[in-house]
């Protein structure tokens, strides 16, 4: 599904160079649920942005479903972001003037879907995250947890190959975080591949695999023995 080989990312700010990613090798297979952990500044977001085709590495290779993404142009990357990747941000990143429904429809507009199809799929996605009763609300009329659920519905609506989430619970209280993790687990049960950044061990233990970063390098990569199941029933 995802294969990254000796990936390097260097930020240059004037004379100062920051090596945000150093020789990263990582493979994520279909159906996995991976948490990426590490201290602040260790390169987690940098990796996620590259995986999400929002940014490019300085060197190394990135294969998404066997396609070498590093060789694609801007338009091709936009198409991948649109169809193959669902991205969930810490800050929700909803468009404030659009309703929940319209926010969820956005990726389909760029995919060129017809109005009716968009409506149906967007309503289905909102239903999946338990927000059928909030479809016509504006983002500022929703709680943090609800906003993040709209963002998840939006990320899922074009049925992407992979769901990327950069600290999705970072702005949420523990109850909302728990709800979001429940949604992720349900989606993963249905076969959605998820890579998620978090610095909370408690949250990370809801996933099946934890990759830990330090100073731009992977220091550990372990499967979770006994993931916490939302609703109590541990696997």
């Amino acid at each position: 599904m995802i294969k990254v080989e000796s990936l390097n990312k260097i930020y240059e700010n004037g004379r100062i160079q920051v090596a945000a990613l150093k020789n990263i090798n990582l493979t994520v297979s279909q159906g996995e649920f991976v948490a990426i952990m590490g201290a602040s500044g260790s390169g987690k977001s940098t990796l996620m942005n590259i995986l999400g085709c929002l940014d490019r590495a300085n060197s190394g290779k990135y294969f998404l479903e066997q396609v070498d993404v590093s060789s694609l142009n801007d338009d091709e990357l936009a198409k991948i972001r649109n169809l193959k990747i669902g991205f969930v941000f810490q800050a929700f990143n909803l468009l404030p003037k659009l309703t929940a429904l319209e926010n969820v429809e956005l990726p389909m507009i760029y995919a060129g879907a017809k109005h009716k199809e968009r409506r149906e799929k967007a309503l289905a996605a909102l239903d999946k995250v338990g927000l059928s009763d909030r479809v016509l609300h504006l983002p500022n009329e929703l709680s943090g947890g609800q906003k993040q659920r709209v963002a998840i519905a939006r990320a899922l609506v074009n049925s992407p190959s992979i769901l990327l989430a950069d600290e999705p619970t970072g702005n949420l209280d523990s109850k909302s975080s728990e709800e979001i993790m429940g949604i992720f687990q349900k989606l993963n049960d249905e076969g959605v591949t998820i890579v998620m950044v978090t610095h909370e061990p408690e949250i990370a233990h809801h996933t099946k695999r934890i990759v830990t970063f330090k100073d731009g390098e992977i220091i550990t990569d372990k499967f979770v023995d006994n993931p916490i199941r939302v609703g109590g029933d541990a696997l």
Binding site: D74, A78, N82, N93
Partner: peptide
């Protein structure tokens, strides 16, 4: 930025 992250092309 948000629109681009959701798949908007430069020309969109």
């Amino acid at each position: 930025g948000i629109r681009k992250s959701l798949g908007a092309k430069n020309k969109d």
